[in-house]
């Protein structure tokens, strides 16, 4: 009965969105500009900003997240003080509310680094936010690899960099992909950290230093600040939900394929 309740709630949410949103979505809606604060027109620029923010975020977060995880597994001995310190600060980082990342991003990226309200500031703020996810999933993926993989590679006189790139990374890839997916989903759905870092502008961004609203900020703005915005907002919400589902599905599919190919 409890299970039915929770699954029911999910269906309720999705069906509501579908009911209100489907009629609004067409190619026009996805590509054309925002008009009358969103009551007319589409969400083209919003999608563009979202993708740019996501790109900045991933370009920074992935190397740092994966690098940090590999440092923990390869460069320091397990159980050392450095590892303890690092895992603890990653845990703490993961528990910080997103709005606080927003505060930090606004102070550091926007003002001190002088990036202003921009796609770049937003992306970097999100990168800080999803970093712990990437570190943890990569770590879990690498640590679950059989130890003799590393042993036999070392016994052949391979350098650490070769062991990492040719032996461990291909094997850990599906796990890293899962972390990537969760990270992308978190970044796409984030609103609070973006309001004060990449701003509200609805026009199409010309550069990474322009302000641009992500799709979740758009939904928020439509629902709260625009009278009669709810139907259009639900259309955007439906788009967001579908994208996230699709990413989840694709990641599962690709990591299955990858495992098949490797074995």
């Amino acid at each position: 009965m409890a299970a039915v309740l929770s699954v029911g709630a999910l269906l309720w949410i999705v069906l509501d969105l579908v009911k209100m949103g489907t009629s609004q979505i067409d190619w026009e809606f996805l590509t054309s500009g925002v008009e009358e604060s969103g009551r007319a027109g589409g969400i083209g620029p919003v999608i563009k900003s979202t993708l740019l923010i996501l790109m900045c975020c991933l370009l920074v977060a992935i190397p740092f997240g994966v690098g940090c995880a590999f440092w923990i597994t390869e460069m320091v001995s397990p159980g050392s003080r450095l590892t303890a310190w690092l895992t603890r600060s990653v845990d703490l980082l993961a528990s910080i509310p997103s709005i606080v990342f927003g505060l930090f991003g606004m102070a550091f990226f926007c003002r001190i680094l002088g990036l202003g309200f921009s796609i770049l500031s937003g992306g970097l703020t999100l990168a800080c936010m999803i970093l712990p996810i990437l570190i943890r999933t990569t770590l879990a993926a690498v640590q679950s690899l059989p130890p003799d993989l590393r042993l036999s590679a070392t016994a052949m006189g391979l350098r650490k960099s070769t062991i990492l790139s040719r032996v461990l990374l291909p094997r850990a890839f599906p796990g890293i992909l899962i972390g990537f997916t969760i990270g992308v989903a978190r970044a796409l759905s984030e609103t609070a950290a973006l309001i004060f870092t990449s701003g509200y502008a609805t026009r199409s961004p010309a550069s990474l230093l322009d302000s641009g609203r992500s799709i979740s900020v758009h939904i928020f703005d439509m629902a709260m600040n625009v009278p009669n915005g709810a139907t259009r907002a639900s259309a955007s919400a439906l788009v967001l939900l579908l994208v996230i589902l699709m990413i989840n599905y694709l990641a599962n599919y690709f990591s299955d394929q990858w495992l098949k190919k490797v074995n």
Binding site: P146, D148, L149, L151, S152, A153, A155, V167, P170, R171, V262, N263
Partner: peptide, 9 residues
């Protein structure tokens, strides 16, 4: 090694 450990490639 004891357990055969070719790279899973």
């Amino acid at each position: 090694f004891q357990k055969p450990n070719p790279f899973p490639q």
